[in-house]
């Protein structure tokens, strides 16, 4: 088992490496030179100098910045190594991702690692909540549909779920906003707190306020997750119900409830568990749209605004974050698969 995990982690690192190269190449396609822009800004302080002197001064400053940012060599490979933190800069220091230098955000004027903390907390909170809520709804629903297969209720749910997963997230969000904010007027259309945070001094009141603003996004996200998940639970439950052991259990005279929840559900759980992990990660990208629509300060919202303002260091780190999440997810799925299903031997 340990060997397998180690192997997977090693493989994960390889994928991460390859992806980081791809990312680096893509970002270098963008014509931007940070050293040049900063040197341009710096040179305005030397306005009074005569032109020739100013030009040489500019070259000087430009070079300084190039050394600082490690762009003084034209070799892209060396630059890549410097960015990762495996090759030293011209002044001998190592300052890359591995050393904890994740870049600098122009938009906020801060280190990227600092501005990413808050959004990440928000996003993770939202996603965990949505996962719990969605699972709480979809699992019983899926089981019920599978047990009552072919009945009116099941058929209706089939149609409803197909609608659910055929609609883009933003469309559902728009419809929900229209219904709850425009038609009923009971929920706020966007934001995270009442503007100005009037209850900041009262902890519970503040929390309540924030919860009030979270209702609609959470509702939309949960709703979006229902369709695919219910169908999946239903499918694996149907598969499990047609197994021979179920027939045996029924033949033994066990109560139907026990047959369903103890025998069948356990067998159906295996594919569901693996799906849940992967799906938990997929909401991270799904929440981009939601966070943008509801103006939530989360990872998706940050990615959106950074892309808009061309704040590429932030985007880069976010991208690595998403990739890492996805790779970790795959790893967890594989391990969990082995744990849940004794038939799968992972230490091959």
């Amino acid at each position: 088992m340990l060997k397998y995990i180690l192997k997977r982690i090693g493989y994960m690192l390889l994928v991460l490496l390859i992806l980081s190269i791809i990312m680096f190449v893509i970002y270098n396609l963008v014509p931007s030179d940070r050293a040049y822009t900063e040197a341009k800004a710096e040179i305005t302080r030397y306005k009074n100098l005569p032109k020739e002197e100013r030009d040489t001064k500019f070259e000087e400053i430009y070079h300084e910045f190039q050394v600082l940012y490690g762009t003084d060599v034209s070799n892209k490979f060396v630059r890549y190594l410097r960015w990762v933190g495996l090759a030293p800069y011209s002044d001998g220091r190592l300052n890359g991702l591995l050393q904890g230098n994740f870049g600098y955000s122009y938009q906020y004027g801060k280190e990227v690692i600092e501005i990413i903390k808050d959004p990440m907390r928000n996003t993770i909170f939202i996603n965990i909540f949505v996962t719990i809520a969605a699972l709480g709804i979809t699992i019983p629903l899926g089981i019920r549909c599978a047990v009552k297969r072919g009945k009116m209720g099941d058929r209706t749910m089939q149609v409803v779920t197909i609608i659910g997963y055929s609609l883009p997230t933003f469309l559902i969000a728009i419809v929900f906003i229209w219904f709850f904010c425009s038609l009923l007027g009971v929920l706020p259309p966007s934001g995270m707190t009442t503007p100005g945070r009037p209850y900041a001094d009262n902890y519970w009141r503040d929390l309540l306020d924030r919860a009030y603003y979270m209702i609609l996004p959470l509702l939309v996200m949960t709703f979006c997750s229902l369709g695919g998940m219910t169908r999946y639970v239903r499918a694996s439950m149907i598969e499990a119900l047609s197994m021979d052991c179920i027939k045996t259990a029924r033949a033994k005279g066990l109560r139907e409830k026990i047959v369903i929840y103890s025998h069948a559900w356990r067998n159906a759980l295996i594919p569901v568990v693996t799906l849940v992990v992967g799906w938990f990660l997929s909401i991270f990208s799904g929440s981009i749209v939601i966070e943008q629509i509801f103006a939530i300060n989360g990872m998706g919202g940050l990615l959106y605004s950074s892309l808009r303002s061309q704040d590429y260091d932030v985007v880069m780190l976010m991208q690595m974050f998403y990739v890492l999440m996805s790779l970790l997810g795959n790893l967890i799925i594989d391990i969990v698969y082995g744990l849940v299903d004794p038939r799968v031997r992972v230490n091959k």
């Binding site: 992806l19 893509i26 963008v30 981009i288 990615l303 985007v315 996805s326 795959n330």
Partner: peptide, 26 residues
């Protein structure tokens, strides 16, 4: 299959957004 896994590991929407934004600058 390893190549497939690498592509599968790329989170879809963020990556598509980033690529599209960068291509948009060109």
């Amino acid at each position: 299959m390893r190549v497939t896994e690498i592509f599968a590991a790329i989170p879809f929407l963020p990556f598509a957004m980033i690529l599209s934004a960068i291509m948009g600058r060109m």
